[in-house]
Amino acid sequence: MDADRAARSRAVEALAGLPCEPGVPKPDPILIADNVVRRFGGLTAVDVKHVEVQRGSITALIGPNGAGKTTFFNLLTGFDAPDEGSWTFNGRSLSGVAAHKVARAGMVRTFQLTKALSKLKVIDNMRLGATGQRGETFWRALLPGTWKQQEAEVTARAEDLLTRFKLIAKKDDFAGSLSGGQRKLLEMARALMVQPEMVMLDEPMAGVNPALTQSLLGHVKQLREDGMTVLFVEHDMDMVHDISDWIIVMGQGGVIAEGTPDKVMADPRVIDAYLGAHHDGAVKTVGGEEVDAGDLEESGGVTLIGAVDELSQDDVPSPPVSGDDDFRKEPA
């Protein structure tokens, strides 16, 4: 039992004495980001001056809806390009590196809106995660002999993980037939197939029922014990408090506070910026799994709300709003 908690105590110890202020240096950072800025038209979605993530810890990234957490994830993992800024992972600069190379470098992410590959079986979803597969090159794919054995190994590992995540019974079902919570589990398990050094989970618990949440929490803690670093976004403060070693708070694109869970939760700035209005716990798990309120606003909230507002006050001339001429629809 004690050995099971070793990583936790190590992380807690390493972070214990640090001052609780934005951008504080960590003793053994795995990820360091500097001056990362991303603007959408007039809106600065992310403007992070300096942030470090301690190796082997569980770090929570919290902040109100639209604070820029997902955008920050997108930038770090190469899914979006920043306007400025640089960051290193394991001492290697990853700015401007393509998303798939980021994953291969050992930093794997999941998505806020789960991306289960619905028309693939659960087991194929898992197998896909394995890296360095010989059968994934064109010419060797034509010769089953060259990859059959590796495939068997990959399958064994996949089944292992599925057993751990209690999905083994669903192994041969299409991923599309899974429930929302099961998809979250599958996505996490699939990310682990990559054997990353660091996992970045975007709201892994959203839409997952309380019973399952406990087991998910267990999995996340286990990742730390397995030597991985975890950075995750979550709105449920109890849960964040429960499992994280360190909390980074984002607000309006920037890091507004950092610290150990106890200190951050007591920080008046955080309560103001984040917990203030909803202190009674209303923030827990905003919205459902597929469409949450945050996402509704995100797709160009400014224009939309502007337009909707204008409808109710007929003769007031409309103020010029950004993206006024925009008819684009988000591809779902």
Partner: peptide, 27 residues
Amino acid sequence: LLMSSPWGRVLKAIREDEDAVRSLGKN
């Protein structure tokens, strides 16, 4: 042959959601 191999699996996964495939380290 191709579609029953891991190569084909990647292709089908791209059809479903290419961002997910990218996040798993495939080009």
